[in-house]
């Protein structure tokens, strides 16, 4: 082959809810080890896009390929086993269980490939250290703050050791310090894995992004370097709510 196949590729991906078109003909490609940011105003279709990638929604039309596997319409657990992990927009954790149990559940599934309980325990300790919740390991997740639960969810995603990590607004509800820490972790993960990050916080995007894809009204409006995107007048208009010149 002349060029390396992308890690993730969508073609003509479309999602309709009745008359509402949430995603319209999205053609998207992500290289191995790439870090991509998705931006766009509310309702631009970013979360719908993530839900189709993870199997929570079945696309009305179009294909998704992860490596060589066509995954559009697969069930969430099948896609997760192929190696796609997601932190959803609203913290999606096991509220009634301890932090350690949350992380263990992710690690146990990942370690099942190697059939090793020790491996799972090692992953748990490593991840607890990384998300800096070692001191709260036995705390019940439902009693933690919003920011801490975000960390727990990031921890579960890390512990599952996926090939591709999707993060939907990872810095929402975090303090400046926590946000900086998140950016640091994202760069660290990116040394070995590919990521797609949805975020509204432009400062945060500047900290991590190389290439940015802009969603608007369910379509990809532009795709370029972070500097070029932030300098683009159409992008600014979209975020400020002005009409895009047709």
């Amino acid at each position: 082959m002349a060029e390396i196949a992308p890690l993730l590729e969508t073609r003509n991906l479309t999602m309709r809810f009745g008359g509402v078109v949430a995603n319209d003909d999205v053609n998207f490609a992500l290289e191995e080890m790439e870090l991509r940011c998705l931006i766009g105003p509310n309702g631009a279709g970013k979360s719908t896009f993530f839900k189709m990638l993870t199997g929570q929604l079945t696309p009305t039309q179009g294909t998704i390929r992860f490596r060589t596997h066509p995954i559009a319409g697969n069930l969430p657990h099948q896609i997760a086993r192929l190696g796609i992990g997601i932190k959803t927009q609203i913290p999606n954790v096991f509220n009634g269980l301890s932090v350690r149990e949350n992380v263990w559940l992710a690690a146990a599934r990942a370690a099942r490939r190697e059939a090793s309980a020790k491996r799972a325990a090692a992953i748990v300790d490593e991840v607890l250290e990384r998300i800096r919740l070692g001191g709260l390991a036995e705390a019940i997740v439902g009693q933690l703050s919003h920011g801490q639960r975000q960390w727990v969810e990031i921890g579960t995603v890390l512990a599952a050791e996926p090939e591709l990590i999707l993060l939907d607004e990872p810095a929402a509800g975090m303090t400046d310090e926590e946000t900086a820490r998140t950016a640091e972790i994202i760069r660290e993960i990116n040394r070995t894995r590919a990521l797609i990050v949805v975020e509204h916080d432009m400062e945060f995007i500047k900290m991590i992004a190389k290439k940015v894809t802009v969603f608007h009204q369910g379509r990809i409006m532009m795709e370029d370097t972070v500097e070029a995107v932030l300098a683009d007048s159409r992008v600014r208009d979209v975020y400020l709510g002005k009409k895009v010149a047709a």
Binding site: Q56, R81, N92, F94, N95, L97, R109, T156
Partner: peptide, 11 residues
């Protein structure tokens, strides 16, 4: 506790 999360982890 959370069916969606369990599925997204591969169960």
């Amino acid at each position: 506790e959370n069916e969606t999360r369990a599925a997204l982890l591969g169960y």
